[in-house]
Amino acid sequence: MDAKKEQFYQRPPKLGKWEAIRLFLWNSETGQFMGRTGSSWAKILLFYILFYAVLTGFFGAMLAVFYQTLDPHHPKWQQEKSLIGNNPGLGFRPMPPESNVESTLIWYKATDQGNYGHWVKELNKFLAGYEQNSLSGASEQRIQCDYGRPPPPGKVCNVDVKQWNHCTKANSYGYHKSSPCIFLKLNKIFGWVPQYYNDTNALPNNMPEDLKMHILGEKNRNPKTIDTIWVSCEGENPADIENIGPIHYIPSRGFPGYYFPFTNTKGYLSPLVAVFFERPKYGVLINIECKAWARNIIHDRFDRRGSVHFELMVD
C-alpha cells in the first residue's frame, strides 16, 4: 500500500525545453494538439463561429436601423441643433503650404515665378470645381441666375470665374504683378437663409463707411441687388490701413442672395468674392480682416465666425 501511494504521488519526469514544446504541440499518448483533443477544438471553434456570426448579424441589423433614420440629402440635425450652428464662417483661398498649415500668411516674391507659383497652383486647384465641365453631369444643373430670378427646384446657380478680369487663371490671379487676388467664401450651412441689410436707415454702426455708401448707391440704382451678403476687407491697424492700398471686389461686393439657401442640390457651387489688392505696399506685413455682413451673421474673431483674418506680404 505504501509503495502504491509513493508511486501515485511521484512527480512526472522533468522534460527539456524542446521536448516540452514538442509534447505541447502533439501528445501521441493523449491525442492532444496544443493541449486539446480534436473534439475539444471542434467544439470551441463551433462556439466562436456562432458567437461572431450572431455578433456580426446584430451589428448589421443595428446599422441598417441607423441608416433608416438618415437622409443622404438632408442632415438630421440642422442649424442651431447641429454642431456647426447657424452662424457661417468665412474662409479664404489660397491657403499656405501644408507644412505651415497653422499660418494665415500669404507671402511671396512677385519677381520669382517659382516663389509665387504655389499660390497660383492652390487657386487653380480650388477653382477647378467651378469649371463648367469639372463635375460629371453637374453642368446640366447649373443656370445663370440673377436678382429676382432664383434657380428653380433641382437647379443651381452658376459661378463663372472665367470672366473676373484681373482675378482669372489666365492672369495668374495678379500674383505676378504684385496685385494678388484673395478669394472669399462662406461655409455652407444647410437651410440657412440670410437676413439682409436692405434698410439703409438701420445699418450697424461698426460697418465700414465705404460699405454703407456702397449699399446706399446700390439701393438707388437697383433695389433688388441689396439682397446680398455684403463683404468688407480692411487693414486691422492704422499702419495696415495705410499700407493696404486700393481694394476691389470681383464680380461684386458680396454674395448674391439667390445662392441661398444651400439645400445640397447636385452641382451646387458656393458663391465667391475675389478681393483684388491693387497696390499693397512692398516688403511690409499687412494684417487684413474680412467680414461678411447680414443681420444673422455674428462676428467673432476668436471662434472664426462671420469673419476671417490673414496677412499679406509682397516682396
Rank of each mutant, 00 (worst) to 15 (best):
F47T: 14
N100D: 14
Q132E: 15
K125F: 04
S103V: 09
G91W: 05
F92I: 03
I106V: 15
P96S: 11
L127P: 02
M62V: 14
L105K: 11
G60K: 08
G91D: 13
D71F: 03
P88M: 08
E98C: 05
F51A: 13
H118N: 02
V65Q: 06
A128Y: 06
G91E: 14
F66T: 03
K125Y: 09
L123R: 08
N115I: 06
K81V: 10
P75V: 04
L127G: 03
F47C: 06
L83Y: 07
N124M: 11
G85M: 13
V54E: 01
A64Q: 05
V120E: 05
W107E: 15
L123K: 12
N133M: 02
H73G: 01
L55W: 13
G91A: 06
G89W: 06
G85K: 05
F58C: 05
I84K: 02
L46Y: 06
T69E: 14
T111P: 02
L50H: 01
F51G: 08
G117W: 09
F51L: 14
N133S: 06
N87E: 12
N86L: 07
S103Q: 05
Q78W: 01
Q68P: 00
E131K: 07
K81S: 13
V54N: 03
V65M: 10
A138G: 07
N87A: 06
Q68R: 02
L70D: 04
G129I: 10
G117C: 09
Q68C: 01
Y48R: 00
N100K: 01
S82E: 13
F92R: 01
E102N: 09
F59E: 10
M62C: 10
P88S: 09
T56I: 15
V65I: 13
F126H: 05
P94Q: 08
H74E: 12
S103A: 07
G137T: 14
G60V: 15
S103Y: 04
L70S: 04
L83I: 10
R93Y: 14
L63P: 01
D112P: 00
L55E: 11
G91R: 01
E131L: 07
A110K: 03
N124T: 15
L46N: 11
H73P: 00
G114I: 05
A128S: 15
L123V: 15
